[in-house]
């Protein structure tokens, strides 16, 4: 089975496990299998059926956005990794 590495903050939803075995022939199928096993992950990975903009899926060093996205085919021995894009920024400017 393929494996998906879970980012540290989301391991609270996988019982602390860093790597989860998943079934599926594409990245999308593997992610669906992941959230079937660990449903609390869904809200943080997906906005409805779309991956959240800050959620990146890597196969090795390659971002799936530069492959075929969720339709990217994977081998049973593939290692995937979920990587959040960290971003932030202020709201309103303070009055000085």
């Amino acid at each position: 089975m393929a494996k998906i590495r879970i980012p540290t903050p989301l391991r609270a939803f996988t019982g602390g496990a860093a790597d989860i075995d998943v079934a599926g022939g594409t990245v999308g199928e593997a992610l669906n299998n992941l959230v079937e096993q660990h449903p609390e992950l869904r809200a943080h990975l997906f906005n409805e059926d779309e991956l959240r903009s800050f959620v990146n899926i890597f196969i090795g060093d390659e971002d799936i956005r530069f492959l075929q996205g969720l339709d990217t085919e994977i081998e049973a021995t593939e290692s995937l990794r979920i990587i959040p894009s960290i971003a932030g920024g202020r709201g309103q400017r303070m009055e000085n």
Binding site: A87, G88, G91
Partner: peptide, 21 residues
Amino acid sequence: HSHPDSPALPSEYDREHALPN
């Protein structure tokens, strides 16, 4: 991260990009 000339309060942008735990 910093909020230049802005309070140390999370913005809506922060919330949209945040992770739990």
